[in-house]
Computed example of a mutant assay.
Amino acid sequence: MAAKGREKEPVDEVHQTQIMCEVIRKELRTQKLYTHYHVNPNRKGYTITRKPMSWHDNIEEPADAKFLNIIHYAAQGPKKKYSEPQTESQEIGWDSDPLVPSERWDRRVNFFRHYMDITKYMAEFWRMKARESSD
C-alpha cells in the first residue's frame, strides 16, 4: 500500500499492454465457435405478413415433420428429455418419488392432532380470553 504522502506511480504502458494480452489470451482460450444453428421453436416461422387477397398464400402448406419434432421435443419436461440431470440445479428434485409410500393410517409416521377434554377446555379458555382483551 502506498503511504499517505506519496503520489501514485505513473502508469507503465508496457505493463498495461502485457495485462491486456493476458486477458485476451484467457478469453480466446474459453471461447468456442458455434457453427450449428437451428430454428428457434419459440418464434413463428413467418416474419412477413402475407397479403390477404392473394390466392397462392391461402393454400395450406404441408406440416414440416422435422420442425414439429423439434417443437414437441422442446415442450417436453427435462425428465423426459434426459436420463440424468444436466445441471446441478436440476439435481434438486430430480428424484421426487417418495422413498417410503405415504400411508395415512400408519400412526408411526402420521401424528394427527388429538383433542382431549383438557385441550378442548384450554382452547376455549384462550379463545374467551382473546375476546375479552379485544373488547
Rank of each mutant, 00 (worst) to 15 (best):
V39M: 10
R127P: 00
L68S: 05
H56L: 02
L28S: 08
H38R: 06
D97M: 04
N110E: 10
W126G: 03
E7H: 09
I24K: 10
S96R: 06
E91F: 01
G77W: 05
Y121M: 08
H15Y: 11
H72Q: 07
H15G: 14
Q16D: 14
E124I: 02
P85H: 07
H56E: 08
P101R: 04
E60C: 04
K32D: 00
T35K: 05
V109L: 10
E88S: 13
G5T: 08
K66R: 08
W105H: 12
F125D: 12
W94C: 09
T47C: 02
W94D: 07
W55P: 08
P78A: 08
P85V: 04
S83N: 06
F125M: 12
I19H: 07
T17N: 09
F112Y: 10
S133H: 14
Y121N: 10
H38M: 04
E60V: 06
S54I: 00
L33F: 01
Y82A: 09
V100D: 13
I118A: 13
V14P: 00
M122V: 15
M116W: 02
A65V: 12
P101C: 04
D135C: 03
T119G: 13
E132Y: 07
G93P: 06
V11E: 13
P41Y: 06
Q90E: 15
M20K: 14
M122E: 15
N42E: 13
A123F: 02
I71E: 02
Y46Q: 05
Y115M: 11
Y121F: 12
Y37E: 02
V11I: 14
I19A: 13
S102R: 06
I118D: 14
P10H: 02
W126N: 11
H38C: 03
Q76D: 05
Y37V: 03
K79F: 05
S54G: 04
P52Y: 01
P85L: 03
K4G: 14
K120M: 15
A130K: 10
I24E: 11
D106P: 01
R113M: 12
Q31D: 04
D12F: 03
